[in-house]
Design a protein around this nucleic acid. Structure first.
Length: 206
DNA sequence: TCTAAGATGGGT
DNA sequence: CCCATCTTAGAA
């Protein structure tokens, strides 16, 4: 499939999309949108098919749950910037910072359906037979996203999220978030969202 | 300084 | 099931 960075087809989401105060709604609205990266002369793009919401106030699963540290600083900034952190010393997980200055919410992007730059993705994934972009750590590797991109403006030309004018209809499924069992009662929040029937999600719901 | 834990992924 | 791998946060 051809993909062109053409504003008549793919339009960057405006800052106001990210600045909304309901991070759960933003997580749902990010499904179906297109994540685009342009690093090292390689353009890659994919449809977002799975997300998770994290709220900075009262959510024990969120890194910035009341605590402001060097790592979580960017989440306290304005919406529409990248928060990328290293997980288990190996995986770079990409989040979209949402809400306004001082309100540290974010949406973790957990899986994409590749649309463009398949060769670059496979090369970056070292041609393994494993999953290409179905998981928060694999999609970042495929798209060349790493912790150095923390703070990147998502309205930039290197890394951005755009809407497709195709307007496909789909049903949204929700489930508990993955890997946050330590968060006690907050682990039960059904804040993982995915596109029903899409085969590129990281895991099916129960 | 020291250390345990972690929003995972891939192989056995 | 097991483990690679290393930053971060919080404790001492």
């Amino acid at each position: 499939m051809d993909f062109e960075i053409n504003t008549s087809v793919y339009e960057k989401l405006p800052r106001s999309f990210y600045q909304r105060d309901d991070v759960v709604q933003v997580a749902k609205d990010l499904l179906g949108k297109v994540l685009i990266s342009n690093f090292d002369g390689m353009i890659t793009a994919g449809k977002i098919v799975e997300t998770e919401a994290y709220c900075g106030r009262g959510d024990k699963a969120c890194h910035a749950n009341g605590k402001k540290t060097p790592r979580t600083q960017v989440m306290y900034g304005d919406g529409g910037y990248a928060y990328v952190y290293l997980c288990y010393g190996i995986h770079h997980l990409f989040n979209v910072v949402t809400n306004r200055e001082g309100l540290a919410d974010a949406v973790l992007i957990r899986a994409i359906e590749p649309l463009d730059g398949l060769d670059a993705m496979k090369e970056r994934r070292k041609f393994t037979k494993a999953k290409l972009t179905s998981g928060p750590g694999t999609l970042t590797q495929a798209m060349g996203i790493n912790v150095r991109m923390t703070g990147y403006d998502l309205l930039s030309d290197e890394l951005c999220v755009a809407s497709s004018t195709k307007g496909e209809k789909f049903k949204i499924l929700s489930d508990v978030r993955i890997g946050v069992e330590y968060a006690e009662e907050d682990a039960l929040r059904p804040w993982r969202f995915l596109i029903e029937g899409n085969s590129f999600v990281s895991k099916k719901v129960k």
